[in-house]
Amino acid sequence: MASSAITAVAEPVFHLEEEHAHAEGGSTMLGFWLYLMSDCLIFAMLFAAYGVLGGNYAAGPAPKDLFDLGLVAVNTTMLLLSSITYGFAMLTMDKGRVGATQAWLAVTMLFGLAFLSIELSEFAHMIQEGATPQRSAFLSSFFTLVGTHGLHVTFGIVWMVTLMVQVARHGLIEANRRRLMCLSMFWHFLDVVWIGVFTFVYLMGMLR
């Protein structure tokens, strides 16, 4: 009785009508950017670990005995080419051409796969020579850093295949465009991390 009288007098006002509508996915790009920045911190930790431990060979092989800069140069080219072909996929997506977007995504994926297979063969070669992650602190931190980057590329490729299926089924709808833009940021970000890897690990390792 009393409570109903009170609510009748002081009706709470929440000003809900002043809150303008947010389009679905309006904050996705910023949120994904924040994720990438936190991923960047993971890589910063791994780079710091490599920087600290990279000189501890435990009488094992050193970078000069293991790294093949020619192979790394080819690998870098693969990743760089995949970056520009993903850019072309985004440009054709802007024009709404489904077939061309899918084709550029497929080319990007092939470059990504080439990068991964070169990296895996490099790892296999190193492990065959006895340069396993257990051999020395240098090799542990090397495999952790470069392996984490390789895992990111692997998941990027899985994501790319998923989106190609999505685009094939639903076309370039708003949600798919948003997803493709997120993957674009992810893919270019991996290229940025790779710049750090080839400079800090491979090139500086050969100078040491």
Binding site: A73, L80, I84
Partner: peptide, 21 residues
């Protein structure tokens, strides 16, 4: 923009590799 970025990064990658190799 993409082509400028690509050409610049090819140059910026090739020079350090050339220097070390």
């Amino acid at each position: 923009g993409y082509l400028i970025g690509f050409v610049l990064s090819v140059i910026l990658t090739a020079i350090p590799f050339w220097m070390v190799m």
